[in-house]
């Protein structure tokens, strides 16, 4: 098998005396969809934040395959560095740029893929012009893929909820990541929208050829699209396996349904 895009070894994160992550291991291979599930407060989002550089892990290693195929340890990297390496994320509580247009939001996502700086902005040399044109085109293409093209010049804050979630994904995709991290993408969606999202995620994997790691509570979605499922509880990894294996795992059933349940 190819080398893992993301490899996490013995990751720990302490908040004061509280251990939010306790020796978590995880790996993701190219074009895999991996789900991270578990009850609220299990440490899933903390895990995301450690991987994307928002928190610094207390112990353990995070390795990422950079764009040249070199394995790099990214502990303590700043979020923007992590994104440059090819990881892009969405947020549990939507964090768009509300007073910018939909297109501009996606264009921000192109930041790591473009270079122009003060000089380019002032003099608009040929390279900057081309870069700008490409940014607009690529962003527009992505919006179309995410079925958001009719909103291009709308302010992000005026979008309906489901569209805002999709826009967050579009923005992350704009950085051409090799791994997309989705934090509860279906939260607050109705079954119809969730179904659409399912198709969208698979479509992203197939078209962009990238791996996806998602945190999700909607079991149907998780079981339908994941290749591998990781289950977390109290900051520890409880189980790992294919959706089928997880469904039958007694520890998982216990964690979700309580101790008394006899499986």
């Amino acid at each position: 098998m190819a080398e893992a895009i993301l490899e996490v070894r013995e990751l720990c994160k302490d908040f004061g005396g509280l251990r939010a992550l306790d020796h978590v291991d995880l790996e993701i291979y190219p074009e895999q969809i991996v789900a991270l599930i578990g009850p609220n407060g299990a440490g899933k989002t903390t895990f995301f934040n450690c991987v994307t550089g928002i928190y610094e892990p207390t112990e353990g290693d995070i390795f990422v395959l950079d764009r040249k195929g070199k394995k790099r340890r990214i502990n303590g990297y700043k979020p923007n560095k992590v994104t440059e390496l090819g990881l892009a994320r969405t947020f549990q509580n939507i964090r768009l740029f509300p007073n910018m247009t939909v297109l501009e939001n996606v264009m921000i996502g192109r930041h790591t893929r473009t270079k122009s700086w003060i000089f380019g902005a002032l003099f608009r040399d040929r390279r900057t012009k081309e870069e700008e044109k490409e940014t607009i085109e690529v962003s527009y293409e992505i919006l179309k893929k995410m079925r958001l093209e009719k909103f291009v010049n709308e302010l992000a804050s005026n979008l309906p909820y489901g569209a805002q979630r999709r826009l967050e994904i579009a923005r992350a995709l704009a950085s051409e990541p090799s791994l997309l991290l989705l934090d509860e993408p279906a939260a607050g969606m109705n079954p119809q929208e969730t179904k659409e999202l399912e198709g969208l995620i698979e479509q992203i994997r197939d078209q962009e050829k990238i791996a996806i790691l998602l945190i999700e509570h909607d079991m149907k979605l998780v079981m339908n699209i994941s290749d591998v499922v990781y289950v977390m509880e109290y900051g520890r990894l409880l189980a790992k396996g294919t959706p089928q294996e997880i469904k039958e795992d007694e520890r998982v059933i216990k964690a979700y349904l309580g101790e008394d349940h006899d499986a």
Binding site: N80, F97, H111, A121, S175
Partner: peptide
């Protein structure tokens, strides 16, 4: 420009900004 958009985004949400690769 690219820089100007980054400024605007910074004004709106710093965390999201960093996650989008803006230094």
């Amino acid at each position: 420009s690219r820089l100007g958009r980054a400024w605007l985004a910074l004004r709106e949400d710093e965390v999201a900004c960093e996650a989008m690769g803006i230094d």
